[in-house]
Write a protein that binds this DNA or RNA. Structure first.
Lengths: 262, 262
DNA sequence: CGGGTCGTTGACACATTTCAAGTTTAGTGG
DNA sequence: CCACTAAACTTGAAATGTGTCAACGACCCG
């Protein structure tokens, strides 16, 4: 029966579409739902990562801190994302995770997630793909941090958020980030983020009222931020079960080293 | 038998220490050795990623390019690393990979690697851990790019390279990067990299002659770059088979949702 | 009503870039 | 082995994007 359907609803559903009902049952049997408040800390930087969290609803961010105190946000966790995948490999968290909004999490013990991965190749494959998707996003962030101007970075970030939320094109969404947090994401200061936001407003590509961000000219914003959504690989993880046979475990011929790979 | 011992020698051995002889046999049966010249392109940015490369000896870098032409190096591939792990998940490469030196690669067809991962949970677990290790490094690079000064970034990069090469403490190693490539790694210009290198030489923490980089004062360099090697998780991936039983697939009790995870 | 967080604005400082010209080094062909 | 060329490295002066410091206003929540 569809107990799993109840848990994997909304944004989580598409991320876990590749699993069959049985696999989803195994996962949901090991998971617990938890409501958390805005600003609550899910994972302490450098702390023990005994639990892995899935974001069912709400936003969070991953952050690293220097001894000097300055902070860099190294990832945004949107609905459907895993908060701390790195717990699968490492017992100690490299980054902290804090909620931006209140939200609903699914929690699974680290050892249980590892065990499920070991016993179900599709689950472990899914974890791997999610990790590689995070890598792709981090690579792009490195490009933005290293080679884009402040205005370009801001435009790029807004495009990425819109794309990951699935609300591309002109439209509005709630942006629960303070200018301080945007600055820590883009490697800028809050003062400068403020000025650049007003530039973008002045150019008529975005509009802001409170926490609500409206993209007035999506193509313009894309052009400013040099944004190409290919790196997000949307549809590649979610929709892959259009050809599920090719991925089934089982006897498979492995190419011998004598044949040419080149 | 120990054909795999011949293939997984040197730096690759420690990375694959977690696999048993049988699993290494499966991998090596699907792999081919290839010698490549310096500056050769392994993966084209945006191109098809049909083959996954392991670096047995030599250095390479991963890079992404903007439409404007400016380039960011998003990863260094050192001996023992996988060049393009992302091929496991995506058919199209997000980044290009080019050799810095001549080198020896082990190549495996994308589908074969996926198939091996599906049939051997330890292999797929290993892939996952390597992906998460890259993730940890990328997070740190984001912190460096966003929040460190030019001198700090350069010191941090040199510390990271020394640590990943396993030659920590004072010592020399060949650094096959041009100042241009260092600049593209750190989000700076080559001119500025040159100036900062000379600052570090003036402070007596490093010495350069040709391609040879000598760290004269490792602790000083660490202090300048705010470097803490914890994020490299050395020993955690390689040495994990101190407790291999805990990782064996097989019957495992999964905590029920009624128990508390919190 | 009060206090803190967040946003806004201005003037100034500075790290890094840009531009430009040289020098050294490495690679290549005769 | 030398001559030649391109790539890599150096150095200086000037331009500029972003940071810093400081003050004030708006908003929210208790």
């Amino acid at each position: 029966m569809s107990r799993s359907a109840a848990i994997f609803s909304g944004p989580l559903a598409s991320r876990f579409a590749r699993l069959n009902e049985e696999q989803r049952q195994h996962l949901s049997a090991a998971m617990q739902t938890r409501q958390v408040a805005a600003k609550s800390t899910l994972v302490e930087e450098g702390g023990d990562s005994g639990v892995i969290y899935l974001m069912a609803s709400g936003w969070a961010f991953r952050h690293q801190t220097r001894r000097s105190g300055s902070r860099q946000i190294v990832g945004l966790v949107l609905p459907g994302d895993v908060c701390n995948l790195d717990a699968l490999a490492f017992a100690r968290a490299d980054y902290g995770v804090r909620m931006l909004t209140s939200g609903t999490l699914l929690a699974i013990a680290r050892e249980d997630a590892i065990g499920l991965g070991a016993r179900h190749s599709r689950i472990s494959e899914l974890f791997g793909h999610l990790a590689l998707l995070e890598n792709a996003i981090l690579c792009r962030w490195a490009l933005c941090l290293g080679r884009l101007s402040a205005q370009e970075r801001l435009a790029h970030l807004l495009c990425e958020i819109a794309a990951r939320l699935g609300c591309e094109g002109a439209g509005s969404f709630d942006l629960p980030l303070t200018q301080d947090q945007i600055a820590d994401t883009l490697g800028l200061t809050a003062v400068h983020v403020n000025r650049v936001l007003q530039q973008l407003r002045g150019q008529g590509v975005i509009a802001i009222s409170g926490k609500s961000m409206t993209i007035l000219d999506y193509l313009g914003l894309r052009a400013i931020g040099d944004f190409d959504p290919a790196y997000l690989h949307r549809g590649e993880i979610e929709g892959d079960h259009t050809s599920p046979r090719a991925r089934e475990p089982g006897p498979r011929r492995v190419r011998q080293a004598s044949e040419s790979l080149f």
